[in-house]
Amino acid sequence: MLAPYIQAMLSGLAVGGIYALIALSFSITFTTTNTLNFSQGEFVSFGAFVGITVLLFMSGATSLSAIPLSASGGLNYPIVLTVAGVLSGLIGIVIFVAAVRPFTGKPGMSWVMSTIGFGILLQNVGLLVWGPAPANLPAPLGDNVIRVLGAGVRPQELLDLSAAVVIMIAYDLLMRKSRVGKAMRAVAHSPQTASLMGINVQAMMIGAYAASSALAGIAGVLIAPVSTASLFMGLGFALKAFAGAIIGGLSNARGCIFGGFALGVIESYVGLWQAQWREIAVFVLIIIVLAVKPNGLFGARLVEKV
C-alpha cells in the first residue's frame, strides 16, 4: 500500500537532484555577477553530447548509435564527466566574455537576450556537429532496476542523486572555508568593496561563469543515461531548475538546492494525484512563495536604495 508513496519519493528525489544541481549553477552566477545564463539548458545538452563523443573515441565505435553498453565502465565515466565539465567551463568563460561582461553593471537587461542568443548559437553548432537524432550514453553502473522497500530505482538515478549531494556539499565547503570561496562571497556582497580589498573581481566573475557552466555540463552527463541525450533535452530541465531556484531563493545556494529537490518531489506527488495538474501546481506554488517571500524561501532581502 505504501509502495506508490515510497516510489514517488524516490523518483522525485532522483529528478530533484538534477534540478538542484542546475539550480545551484544558476545561483553561482547570480550571486557573483548579478546576471544569469539563460542558455544553461543548452550547456546541459552540450555537456551530454561532449560526453558521448568522448565515449565514442574511447570505445572506438564508428557512430554515436554504435557505442557499446559497456563503454562507460571503469574509469571511462569519470573521464567523460571531467572532459564535459572542463569543456563546458571553457565555453562558460567565452559566454561571459562575449555575451555578459559587456553588459554587467549597466542598466537594462541586455544580457538576457545575449545569453539566450548564445544558447541558440550553441544549439545550432551542436546540430551541425551531432545532428538532430537523440543518442544513448550508456549508464556506468548498468541498467538493472534496484528494489528499495517495494519501489524501483535505476543505478544511474542513485548515482545522480549522490553525485548531486556530493557536489553540493563540496561547493558549500568551498564557499565557506576556502580563500577563493570567501573572495567570491565578498564579490557577491559588494564588487566595489571587494575590489578595494585587493580581490580580483573580474577573475572571480569569470570563475563563477566557468564553474556554473561546468556544473551544467556535468549535469548533462549525469542525466543523459536516464533521459537519453538530445540537443533539446536541456531546456526542460533548466526551466524546472530555474523554478526551483526561484522557490528557494536565487541568492542563496542552499536555498536553490532545497528548491530543486522540493520541486522534484512535489512534481512526483502531484503526479500521484493528478498528473496533468503538475505544471499548474508548480507555478501556483511559485506565485504563492513569491507573494509571501519575494526573494524566495531562503533568499536574502534586497534593500534597493533610491
Partner: peptide, 20 residues
Amino acid sequence: VERFGVADTDMTSQLNKMKE
C-alpha cells in the same frame, strides 16, 4: 486516463494509479 510530459523521465506515479 493519465497524462505525462514529453520530457519526463519517470512516469511511475501515473503508472501506479493505473496499477491500482
